[in-house]
């Protein structure tokens, strides 16, 4: 760091730089968070008149005794574990390849970015066709491999894998663009020096590129985990507004959405939001602590 010790003056300058962002975040993010934190403790609460009957842990008690909440928690964890590692490995690999090639590089970059550009609604309808059990493209392909028709969207066993595949597909472009930006921020001379020193490709990647890319990898990981925990739109459109067959894709945010918008159980919805919040927070802090030892800033 450039200025080793904070002073009053440097603090003033620091906050001046932060002010525009902080103002917006305070009003449109932090205030609503505090608001829903408070709401999670209101029981016998009238959302519309703001009359609070009681303050207590009732909502959390109800929440923790609801089997659907635990199902949602389980499904969300499976989803995150299913999506994040594959998505990061794939996008890192593709980003490296895209960064490496010259011929048609622009074309390929556009192709891989395409899914991210497309609206979720339209593309989810397309995936419904791909996943169709009788005539879907995926089953057509699998039949050639001798794997017999899977009812992707209506079999509770396969609904989650179907959701995971589509999410990975849709999210790749986002991660790739971040990795590409990260790669292009790396001074190419490091790479050349390594190659002159006789390092092979793997060694160059392992000891030069990967450490230099670690700040971006950390960021992509954190982002993927957070957005994985928050998955909702994909479920909603892929399964026609339902939480999947046999609630196989009932995720935490879907649960929250149901409680809030369909069932009007505001306190309970807020409580599930708070639980989700702390869950993500804990995972992110673990991630952060781990990364502090492993991230390499120049």
């Amino acid at each position: 760091m450039m200025i080793k010790k904070p002073t009053l003056k440097s603090t003033l300058i620091g906050f001046l730089y932060l002010a525009p962002m902080l103002l917006i975040l305070l009003v449109f993010n932090i205030f609503p968070i505090l608001d829903s934190f408070a709401m999670s403790f209101f029981t016998k609460y009238n959302f519309y008149t703001n009359q609070i009957g009681q303050i207590g842990l009732g909502n959390f008690k109800t929440l923790f005794s609801d089997p659907n909440f635990w199902l949602a928690l389980k499904n969300t964890l499976i989803f995150v574990i299913g999506v994040v590692p594959i998505s990061i490995c794939l996008s890192l690999g593709i980003a490296l390849l895209l960064n490496h090639i010259r011929f048609l590089a622009g074309f390929f970059k556009t192709v891989y970015f395409l899914p991210f550009v497309t609206s979720t609604v339209a593309i989810s309808l397309v995936w419904q066709w791909i996943y169709n059990d009788q005539y879907g493209l995926l089953n057509l392909f699998l039949r050639h491999l001798g794997i017999g028709p899977i009812n992707w969207l209506n079999d509770p066993k396969w609904a989650m894998p179907a959701l995971i595949i589509m999410t990975i597909w849709k999210g790749l472009g986002f991660n790739i663009i971040l990795f590409l930006a990260g790669l292009s921020n790396i001074d190419q001379r490091y790479e050349r020096v390594a190659q002159i020193d006789g390092a092979n490709k793997w060694q160059t990647f392992r000891y030069i590129i990967f450490p230099l890319l670690s700040p971006m990898t950390f960021l992509v990981t954190v982002m993927s985990i957070i957005s994985g925990f928050k998955v909702f739109d994909e479920v909603f459109v892929l399964f026609g507004g339902s939480p999947g067959p046999g609630q196989a894709t009932l995720t935490l945010v879907f649960y929250l959405y149901q409680k809030f918008y369909t069932e009007w159980q505001y306190g309970l919805a807020a409580a599930s939001g708070v639980v989700l919040f702390f869950l993500i927070l804990i995972v992110t802090v673990i991630n952060y602590l781990y990364s502090r030892k492993h991230i390499y800033y120049v």
Binding site: N68, N154, D155, P156, S242, P245, G246, Q247, A248, Q258, T262, E263, W264, Q265
Partner: peptide, 18 residues
């Protein structure tokens, strides 16, 4: 009724799919 709506959907879904 809003709550009943979700619960009954879940019930019919579990009869059909589970």
């Amino acid at each position: 009724f809003n709550q009943y709506y979700t619960d009954s959907n879940t019930a019919f879904d579990s009869m059909l799919n589970k």
